[in-house]
């Protein structure tokens, strides 16, 4: 029976899709059969980040409407075994994601996968609500910045009241914080909310800190999940995050500024 994990945030542009792509890739790399679903109907982008945009034939909404079956719509990743992508539809019909339809597709996927990762759209509209409704666990992606933290808190409220688990009075959705775009030097200087500041405000366990890194943009340019760039800090941080999710007790890296030598400070380089 598969575990359903929603990657959510409320605010846009904080790194939900980047996190979904790397998290799902990491789970699959470790041998778990994993599918990552794009819930952003009308603004499909996970396919670009995963580098499979030219292989999209059918999508999530086609499957919901019985215009295609799952085998036709699922895209098998060419780099990592056990990894599948279910792309969002580009339809402009906001009502396309019905609760019954989503439930049916998830139930069908549950039979064949260990993990189902739901990449939520920004906002608190239908797509976002559907992405989190059936979740067992949630990765709340937050940037160390006021509007992102506030929106994350709002999403935590929605997870606690509007999810299926909340409605049925089951054990609540397990929530984890993913702090992305973190710049330790700026936090040390007092210019940016620190890891501890954000933890204190949101009050949920920290799964990983992803440092601000040029590699994230470079890998999205290339359509390669950043976790596959294992020599980069962001890639290593996502690897640790996946291991921690699977129960490994790893210390957090990239949370404090590295001491730079005088020459390094002079000539930059990150």
């Amino acid at each position: 029976m598969a575990t359903i994990i929603v990657v959510t945030s409320g605010k846009g542009g904080v790194g939900k899709t980047t996190t979904s792509a790397s998290f799902a890739t990491g789970l699959a790399q470790r041998g778990y059969r994993t599918v990552v679903i794009d819930f952003d109907v009308g603004l499909r982008n996970l396919d670009l980040i995963m580098g499979c945009e030219r292989r999209v034939v059918y999508d999530f909404v086609n499957v919901i409407n019985n215009e295609a079956n799952l085998n036709q719509a699922l895209i098998r990743d060419k780099r990592v075994e056990n990894l599948y992508i279910l792309p969002a539809s580009q339809t402009r019909d906001k009502e396309a994601l019905t609760k019954e339809g989503v439930e049916r597709v998830l139930n069908e996927l549950k039979a064949g996968f260990d993990y189902i990762v739901c990449d939520s759209p920004a906002g608190i509209e239908r797509g976002a609500l559907m992405a989190l409704y059936f979740a067992d666990q949630a990765l709340v992606v937050t940037n160390p910045e006021v509007s992102s933290v506030r929106d994350s808190d709002r999403i935590l409220g929605i997870l606690a009241s509007k999810s299926l688990r909340a409605e049925q009075g089951d054990e609540p959705v397990k929530e984890y914080l993913v702090l992305a775009r973190y710049a330790p030097e700026r936090a040390d200087r007092g210019d940016m909310l620190s890891v501890n500041d954000v933890l204190e405000i949101l009050g949920i366990p920290l799964l990983g800190v992803i440092p601000e890194s040029q590699t994230v943009l470079q890998s999205s340019n290339a359509g390669v999940p950043v976790i596959l760039e294992d020599s980069s800090e962001a890639g290593a941080a996502y690897s640790d995050l996946v291991d921690r999710f699977l129960g490994k007790d790893l210390p957090h890296r990239f949370t404090s500024a590295q001491k730079k030598g005088f020459l390094q400070r002079l000539f930059g380089g990150s």
Binding site: G190, D191, E200, I201
Partner: peptide, 14 residues
């Protein structure tokens, strides 16, 4: 010089 705007952000958020 350090601006400490993060402390202000934290206070407002809380």
């Amino acid at each position: 010089p350090p601006s400490k705007s993060a402390a202000l952000a934290k206070e407002r958020l809380q």
